[in-house]
Nucleic acid binder design. Sequence first.
DNA 1: AACCGCTCGATTTTT
DNA 2: TCGAGCGGTT
Length: 758
Amino acid sequence: MAAVKPDLFTGLNTEQEAAVRTVQGPVLVLAGAGTGKTRVLTTRIAHILGQGLARPWEILCVTFTNKAAREMRERTQKLVGASAEGLQNLGTFHSIAAQILRRHADLVGLKSNFTILDDDDQVRLLKGIFEQEGIDQKRYTPKSFAWQIDQWKNKGLTPDKIKGGEGAEFGGNKGIKLYQAYQDRLRILNACDFGDLLLHNLDILTKHPDILETYHRKFKYILVDEYQDTNVSQYLWLRLLTNTDRNLCCVGDDDQSIYGWRGAEVDNILKFERDYPGAKIIRLERNYRSTEHILGAAAGLIKANTARLGKTLFTDEKGGDKVQVQGLWDGAAEAQFVAEDMERLHKGTRDNDPRKWSDMAILVRASFQMRAFEERFVMLQIPYTVVGGPRFFERAEIRDAIAYLRLIQSPDDDLAFERIINVPKRGIGDATVQKLLQQARLAGVSVMTAVRDLIQTDELPARAKTPLVGFMRDFSRWLDLSKDAQASVLLDTVLTDSGYFDMQRADKTSGQTRLDNLKELGNSMAAFDDLAAFLEHVSLVMDLERDNGGDSVRLMTLHAAKGLEFPVVYLPGWEEGIFPSQRSMDEGGLKSLEEERRLAYVGITRARQEAKISFVANRQVYGRWTNQIPSRFVDELPIENVEATSQTGYQSAGWQSQQSRWDRAGYEPNYTKKAEAPAYGGDLAGVDMRRLEPKARPTPHRQPAPAKPSAKNFKLGERVFHMKFGYGLIVEIEGNKLIVNFETSGDKKVIDSFVDRA
DNA sequence: AACCGCTCGATTTTT
DNA sequence: TCGAGCGGTT
């Protein structure tokens, strides 16, 4: 008779069970795509709790995103019930580090109510410093320096630790000085940025062994999700917090490390065994997601990478469709192909029942590639949702509203002041604001205090003084109100009194959305009884539960697709320079190329049943026509897992022999300039390649069906285009014409071609 | 102080 | 293509 397993383990495979049961000592779980990683983590927590090895708050479980943390909590709850609520230390790196920092803020010169800056504040602060230091802001932008600071902080580098050459040369060798000045300003403002949350933690934990000791006693078990994405400071933080029992379990997949550009170190996972001698390595290789051909194609591709621990995924889903590779003439043809294929699948085919729209996703390398698909979807009226798009809390109106609240919560928040003092326009211009800032700096007080003092004197011209007096009067009324009114009531009052609502209502370009967004902000505040709690939530959880888009096609970047899966996945734009991205390779050479390849791997492995890769011969990029050559990744796909068709002539050349063409042309995988790559039909010997003559605009190979009046299927105010900073809104429907407004610029676009699908 | 029109440049993005 | 940022004008 087989041993009866306790409930918790039923349905787990041998490796998964081992990963759950190996509770003592360091463990690295190498969890390939679709191998049940979250299940292992949640079951492991349940197991630790069930065995009485630790109480809920003695488990430290860190993730990267709030979404992952939320999912982990919910799924653990299903396994252990109410005791999951005691898992106070399940959260993102940043939220847990913030908790710790608030407890010991005084040790790094902050007060425990410090504010957390968003990147907008960060840039504004740097701008001030640049002006003070006389930095040429055309040559050196505050934005690029903000990036540099983030990079330093990701590496755990404080100003004193930077050696020459690591960006120190910024602004004419002023990098370190500017960084130091920035840190000093943060301390004066009682603020820190995201990087500081961890950096200050490191400072506290290394300099105060007694405090470290309390955390060692507290955190009996540590679990880490997506370990391949940890940066140096997160890595150091984990090392510090791991006590001598070393009950550390890191779960990750080196083949899915795609965040190197923001500081993630694949090395962390590669050297786990060296860091924690005697560590157990458990490989999860049984894939529950994809068919054999999809896994085969992905495996063939990732094989080309050198720095990997190595896994071989397998599945019981034998057979299935081969990965489709399509060569197309241009971007419009590609969008047309994808949209028509989706319609075909939506209707149902001989082999498959109808697919829901939401079963299909398009994964692109960069967001500018989305436009062509959106245009086609609007034309065909295929419902689509852009996943990831502009973030709610990053929208200008939301930031403005929050800045008002921040200023009320802590009047010393100079950055909040600067943001809203002339929004809506009060006649307080740049010159006045600069004067106020300077005055405050000289007196060593906050801007609010400086203003309060200044309006008692006659130092300001009446033109600037009058609106300031008015503002201060409003402000003190809000301050009083904040003491007993509900946060959402306060928000409403502030936005009404300040004229902010009026300003937005008067703005014709934005339609209703901005006001709707503000309403949504008010609703989300209702869940918090205290303004401080709400603001903390806003800065750390820059994410609002959004509706899932219903039955619509999903359109997103490859990065946004990590962790998701779809029955059908389209992977367009597999062309050299686009994917792999030229810019990425210019910056990081071979290392970046391997990361791009991992991105391709992530893309393919999102598919459950069908993956469709496409490339084009000609593509418009930012309005310019360019000739494209197929991505080297296409050639790395094993022939036996692929079915190739083409409308460009490329296929007949035999796409699988492309690698040898690269070799003959002396084409190095780590070339640094576009110019070094061979041109189509130029250095390459392949006869068929010449059919793709580099030409100006090609004629579309197929015209869309004649337009019929079907604009009526759209609603006023509907969002149809997703720009980098906002949306396109339907502001008018005139017969068969849609007038779309771009929210930020106010520019108009007319869409007058529709295809009737009835 | 506020607005207009021109030039330039352009991955990936969480907290 | 869009939008940000700048400099010149009202």
